[in-house]
Computed example of a mutant assay.
Amino acid sequence: MIFDEYYIKSLIRNVPDWPSPGVMFRDITPLFKSPKAQRMVVDSFIQRYVDADFTHIGAMEARGFLLGSVISYELNKPLVLFRKQGKLPAKTIAEEYDIEYGKAVLEIQHDAFESGASILLVDDLIATGGTLLAAATLTRQLGGSIYEAAAIIDLPDLGGSQKLQDSDIPVYTLCAFAKD
C-alpha cells in the first residue's frame, strides 16, 4: 500500500484549546478507526526500519504505545515502555521535562534493556520535543543510544524536531502541520 500523506492528514482531528487554552491538539484516534489508515501508517514505519540496525523499540505513553507495540511485533524487537510517573512497578529512573502546556515526568524501569542497546523512540507526534528528549536522557543514563525518533506527526513551529536534531537525534515523521 502506498503512503498517502494527504489522506492521513485528513483523518487527524484538530481540537482547539485542549487540554488548555491556546493549544491546538492533533488527535490521531480517527486514524485507528480506519483499518486502511492504520495499515498505511504502520507499514510506512515497518518498511523504513525492517533492515535498520537497532535493538529495541522505545514507546512513549500513551499514544506511542499504539505504534510501538505493532512495530515491535512486526520487526521482532523488544519493546521498552516510557511511562508517566508512578505507572511502572519495580525500580525506575525518572526525568522531568517541559511540555507544550506544563511539566511532566517520564520514567523507565532500571532494567528495561542492557547497556549498549540502540533504541528507536516512537511517539504519535513531536511538538516541543520534551517527551522524546526525556526518553533520550533516560536511555543514555542506562547506557543505551538513540537510533532515531519517529512519529506520525511533526509540529515544526513548536521546535521539537529541531531540538532533537540539535541533540544529535535523527528525526523521522510521516507528516507535518504548520501552526494554525
Rank of each mutant, 00 (worst) to 15 (best):
P170K: 13
F3N: 07
D111V: 05
S69P: 01
G159T: 01
A176N: 07
A178W: 03
P16L: 11
S44M: 05
L132K: 07
K77N: 00
Q38A: 15
D51G: 05
D124G: 09
L75Q: 02
G68V: 11
V105D: 15
T139H: 02
S44T: 14
D53Y: 00
K91S: 06
G160T: 07
A135F: 05
A178Q: 11
M24W: 00
I152E: 05
D124W: 12
I119G: 02
N76R: 10
F45R: 10
K163Y: 00
V105L: 11
Y147E: 00
G159K: 01
A90G: 10
S34G: 08
L11V: 01
T139M: 01
K87I: 13
G64K: 10
L79D: 09
L138P: 02
A117G: 13
S161D: 12
A117H: 08
H56Y: 03
I108S: 08
I146G: 09
P30Y: 12
I153W: 03
E148F: 02
R13F: 10
D166A: 14
M1K: 11
L75D: 01
Y147N: 03
I12Q: 05
V50Q: 13
A150H: 02
I146K: 08
G130E: 12
A59S: 13
K36P: 07
V42T: 10
E148K: 09
M40H: 06
R83N: 07
S118N: 03
F177M: 10
G130C: 04
N14L: 01
L79M: 09
Y97G: 04
K179V: 10
Y97N: 05
A151E: 14
A149I: 06
R48D: 15
R63E: 07
L81A: 14
M60S: 05
D98P: 03
S20L: 12
F65N: 12
P89M: 10
P16F: 02
A117W: 09
R13L: 08
